[in-house]
C-alpha cells in the first residue's frame, strides 16, 4: 500500500513537484542577484554619483557622468554573469534530475543486481 502510494506520487505529481522546485530555485537566484533590477538599471550612474551639469562644466560633467555609468555597467554586468553561471548550474542539475527521475526508483533494483553479479556499469 505504502509502496504503491509512493510510486503513484513519484510518477504522477512528483515529477511536477520537481519541476516547480527547480523553478523556485531559479527564481531564488534571480531574486538574490537582483537580475531584473540589474537589467533595468544597467547603465544608471553608480550609486547616483553624478556631476550636475551647467554651462561652464558641460563637458566635464558629461565625462564624469559617463564614467559613473560605465563603472556601474561594468559592476552590474559582472553581477549578471555570476547570476548566469548560477542559473546554468542549477538548471543543468535540475534538467539531469528531470531526465533521470523515472529511472531513480529502478536503481533500487538495478544496483543490487549489479552488485551481486559484479557487473560494471562503466
Amino acid at each position: 500500500m505504502l509502496l504503491s502510494s509512493f510510486l503513484s506520487w513519484w510518477y504522477l505529481s512528483g515529477w511536477g513537484w520537481l519541476a516547480k522546485d527547480i523553478k523556485n530555485r531559479l527564481r531564488a537566484i534571480n531574486e538574490t542577484f537582483s537580475v531584473s533590477i540589474l537589467l533595468r538599471t544597467l547603465f544608471s550612474p553608480w550609486k547616483q554619483i553624478r556631476t550636475p551639469a551647467s554651462f561652464h562644466n558641460f563637458f566635464q560633467a558629461a565625462i564624469d557622468n559617463l564614467v559613473s555609468r560605465f563603472i556601474g555597467a561594468i559592476v552590474r554586468i559582472g553581477m549578471l554573469l555570476s547570476a548566469l553561471v548560477c542559473l546554468i548550474f542549477v538548471a543543468g542539475i535540475g534538467l539531469v534530475f528531470m531526465i533521470f527521475w523515472p529511472v531513480i526508483p529502478l536503481m533500487l533494483i538495478i544496483f543490487p543486481i549489479l552488485s551481486i553479479t559484479g557487473t560494471e556499469l562503466w
Binding site: G14, W17, F111, S115, T117, E120
Partner: peptide, 26 residues
Amino acid sequence: FNSSIGYLVLTLAILVLMIKTWQAGE
C-alpha cells in the same frame, strides 16, 4: 576501488534520497 559492493551501498543512498524527496514533496 572496483568493489561491486559500492552499488549496494549506493542503493541505500538512493533509497534515502527517494524517501527525503517524498517527504519534502508530499
